[in-house]
Nucleic acid binder design. Sequence first.
DNA 1: TATGAATGAGCCTTCATTCAT
DNA 2: GATGAATGAAGGCTCATTCAT
Lengths: 195, 195, 195, 195
Amino acid sequence: MRDPDKPQQIIEAAIRVFARNGYYNSRVSDIAREAGIASGTIYLYFKTKDEILVTLFREKMAQWVASVRREVAAERDPLAKVRKIVALHFRVLEENPELAEVLQVELRQGQKFFRGASAHEVSAYFGVINDVLEEGAASGQIRRDLPVKIATKMLFGAMDQLATSWVLGKRAYRLTEAAEPVATIFLKGVCAHGV
Amino acid sequence: MRDPDKPQQIIEAAIRVFARNGYYNSRVSDIAREAGIASGTIYLYFKTKDEILVTLFREKMAQWVASVRREVAAERDPLAKVRKIVALHFRVLEENPELAEVLQVELRQGQKFFRGASAHEVSAYFGVINDVLEEGAASGQIRRDLPVKIATKMLFGAMDQLATSWVLGKRAYRLTEAAEPVATIFLKGVCAHGV
Amino acid sequence: MRDPDKPQQIIEAAIRVFARNGYYNSRVSDIAREAGIASGTIYLYFKTKDEILVTLFREKMAQWVASVRREVAAERDPLAKVRKIVALHFRVLEENPELAEVLQVELRQGQKFFRGASAHEVSAYFGVINDVLEEGAASGQIRRDLPVKIATKMLFGAMDQLATSWVLGKRAYRLTEAAEPVATIFLKGVCAHGV
Amino acid sequence: MRDPDKPQQIIEAAIRVFARNGYYNSRVSDIAREAGIASGTIYLYFKTKDEILVTLFREKMAQWVASVRREVAAERDPLAKVRKIVALHFRVLEENPELAEVLQVELRQGQKFFRGASAHEVSAYFGVINDVLEEGAASGQIRRDLPVKIATKMLFGAMDQLATSWVLGKRAYRLTEAAEPVATIFLKGVCAHGV
DNA sequence: TATGAATGAGCCTTCATTCAT
DNA sequence: GATGAATGAAGGCTCATTCAT
């Protein structure tokens, strides 16, 4: 009876190790040691080292998207939804600094992730933003001629860059404090009337 | 009596190879073959494989920043300068698809690049944007209370994400067509009055 | 309170698995699955994976030698005994194709088998042949100056090669049909007068 | 310019190492050390460890077959040719004890060799024997109704078993002394008239 | 300067074996 | 006794880097 918590423990250990050393500089045995298990044990739960990273990413992104969806659904106003998304985006990363390190820095490189295995989870997140913007356009709060796809990428890119700068700057300030200005600038940019 | 063109040839070869295979899947010997030289020769000009990538990045970014600076200086109006930056950002990538591939996908492993060796070139680019925004705030066209650092990152992040999506989408459309909407949305977001 | 049938079940499972994949490409867990038990259970009955193979070989060889001895004893005429040996050799293999596969192909790594643990069983079989030939020489049917040891190895080698060719040829024909010609040629070779 | 002798040196080193430890118990690094090179160098000349063994076998068998063909062609009489084959078979092994060890003991196991890669070389040797027997049958010295294929396998098997016994018996006697009796017994077995 | 054969450290993965349940 | 999850030693192979020519 395989321990059903092991995969999770391995993933959490991997996050800490990858955050510390980067993916390519982490040995499977490092992850094992961090998880307090033997290196062979990892292969009972993951087929390859790559699979750990892909699973890590998918799982965390899926949780993230789910929680964003949930919180967004709790808001009525499309503009408030946008503010919610930004606030949550930054909050998640601020509360999980090691995950932030991995997501913002380690997971960017190479063909392996954005292309390929994890494309689905990323586009789900894009979908949430996209839907909110379309909802705002439908309600007239956001200008009806907004190129929504482009605006979606802009908002994601803006948040992502703020997060990356924060991580690279060793998290020397509070990322969540950027939420309000980011949301405000973006909304001014896309709204039909003043914000 | 080192051949002064060799380093450049090596870098151009490396761009093509990295664009094709990614950094970690490229061998030094692949670069050598692409450059039409022996692999040992590379070590006459670069100390390590990493150094090729770092040099590549620094050099291309320095050229880029210089050309942005030049074109921006040719404009008077701060808002036109912003539009210029966006247009140029997308144009450079569109005209250099292999470079785009490397910059947007391969060069994201932060440990080595954004942190460390290449931070200087990146922040120079940020500096250009930052200066333009401050100039606009000084002239009153951009709102004076704009958090310029944040807005700078937002614009960079927005452009970067558009570029990344374009690369990951196999460059199936014209990136430059996004320049106008991106600039417009951003300027609406940061300007004191309507755009 | 060990289950007295388990070792046998394990051996029979091992024969099927080795015949399918070869010894080095078979996992202990494969044998366990084939036997319908857990892999740990195997170690209640066998100390190592090697021991399974050695035991398998010894046991099958011992049975074989016993049955050959029995059938040979039932014959009077030394020449008929030789014919019996050949017929039986081929019949055993033809009737146990998976065992044949293992004996002819997998069990040949000499370090472990012909030398070492299983030498005794092999030489018992040689002994049977040897005795029959000596009996024939004593009776004058086989030439008295025959180098019996050499002739013994020749007969065994001839039968063995026929069997190996048959196995490697995917058992596309009936091995037993070779018994008569093999025995005849051999007997012509060793007999004092025409056969 | 790759050293054209390296592959041969590696093969000769491999023969010594395999003869000592067996194939599965030999590390690639053992072969490298024996050859006086670094382990990585082996991979400049052979793709895998397996390839060393296969190449070794093919090359030695090809040489062997060529020399047998040559010597056989020098004889007129078919029966003398058979004697020649036997003599040469034993002489080659006696003069190359380490090769003998590898050929008779290590190369027998597993699907890898007789099946697959080396089948061609083995059947070439069978072909030589087969042709000689047919020639003898045509000349009437060997009985015309001899099942030549079976007799071929018998002779090969007989020689092979003598060789294997000699190797397993630590080569305590002269293998070549068995050549005459083996040939005589076999020829008596297959000839039309007395030998 | 240029070459490319040689080097050898490094690491992922396998799998026989153990042992807590 | 039976289980099967856990162990961890072992080794094939890669490839950045060196260096004799």
